[in-house]
Computed example of a mutant assay.
Amino acid sequence: MIGQAVHKPPRAEGTLGRSRPARPRRARLRKPCWPERIPRAIGAALLAATVIACSPGGDPPASTGPDRGALEHLVAAVDVERAATTSSHERPGSLRFRRQVRLFSQEEGRITSLDVFEGDMVREGEVLVALDDDLLQAELDKARATLAQAELDVRRLEDLVSKRAASDAELSQARTAVAVARGDVRLLETRLAFTRIRAPFDGVVTERLVEPGDFVSKNTHLLTVADPQSLVAEVYASELILPRIRVGDPAQLRIDALGAVAFPARILRIHPSLEETSRQGIVELTLEDPPEGVKAGQFVRVTLETASVERLLIPFRALRRDRDGEFVWLITDQGQASRRKVRSGLQSTDRIEILEGLAPGDRIITRGFLGLSEGKTVKVVPE
């Protein structure tokens, strides 16, 4: 019937249908709540106090935590002072001939002789180029004959004037003809000499631009002769260096093609003008003893030593820079850090010149910038 409870008979005990006995439940360990922990904490505190009270002297141990020395900022510092210093500046440059002459033809004609080549040594006055001179020689012979006739006419007229057979005007005209003839002879002799191009000094041929048999006109470049003893090094120096060097100052010169050996040199000339774009001027140096293998056009490195100058120098690492410019950290009389704006000058190895912002005796910080701020107390320690 609906709504009546159905009673199920208990299962018969047997091997398969026998029910398992119920397992006893394990008692769960309950963690003590906060009030139960308090006695343990109090006991630990009392134990620590007992140990401190029983320690010799009764003083608490020194603190070794991070708070010790938190007010001290350790830095290294130096005192600013003036020093007489020289500075070395290496400048690149090139070797060139200071004395070099380009030989041009002053007469036109065919080249009949040219026996020198590039690299040949020549002596002063030696004939290097000869031009065909037959035409000029013929004109010179004619001029000399004209002169001889004019001189003969003068002597004849002088005899006639003494006999009152000729006038003084005729004699004067004859003498003028002699002077003109002599001028023609000198002109042709000069032009004839121009057909022989001679070496202007002892030197070496650096250019040969024509060959025998070539016909050249006037003002044609034939040869170039240079004086090897006039070899100089030409370098560019900054306008900041030029006021501190003088003609005759010693220098060191290295030629890359000849190795790392430094040769003694001396400043020969300082050009008076500067390039407007780079603000650099030309400095010429001469080698005191030119080595073997030195040639014009070789690359050189010149080390210039400036004169001794009193400068206010600080270690380069003490100079700081940010978007506001250059500055250093000073230590005040109260032992505090103070930022000071400066203007630097030339750098020499690990030191740099200060032009504005510092005075001798100021103490500046060289190490310990991390965490440094205006007014912070600092402690100076050895580097």
Rank of each mutant, 00 (worst) to 15 (best):
G109I: 07
V75D: 07
Q280C: 02
K8Q: 13
T366Q: 07
V328P: 04
A174N: 08
P243K: 01
R144L: 07
T112D: 07
R269N: 09
A251D: 00
R311K: 14
V381H: 05
A84I: 13
L103H: 11
T64F: 11
L160E: 15
G345H: 01
D249N: 11
E353G: 03
Q280N: 07
V380N: 05
P35M: 03
H7Q: 13
G375D: 08
A22K: 12
I42E: 08
A53H: 05
F263G: 02
S162K: 15
V302C: 02
V127C: 02
Q100I: 14
V80S: 12
A22E: 10
R208V: 08
E353V: 03
T332V: 08
G69M: 09
L128G: 00
F369I: 09
R182L: 10
E356I: 10
P60L: 15
A45R: 08
D184Y: 05
L330M: 11
E118H: 00
T306L: 05
A199G: 10
G14V: 05
R155W: 07
P39A: 04
V232S: 01
A49N: 02
T286E: 13
L274M: 07
A84W: 12
G335C: 05
D202V: 07
I354S: 02
L258A: 05
A76E: 13
R343W: 03
L253M: 10
A199V: 07
R311Q: 13
R266T: 14
M121T: 11
T85E: 15
V380R: 06
S344H: 06
A44Y: 08
G345W: 01
Q173E: 15
F215R: 14
G259K: 05
L274D: 00
A251T: 13
A48C: 11
A174V: 10
S172T: 14
V78Y: 08
D324G: 10
L128F: 00
P250T: 04
E234G: 00
R301P: 00
T377P: 04
I111V: 15
D322A: 06
A84C: 06
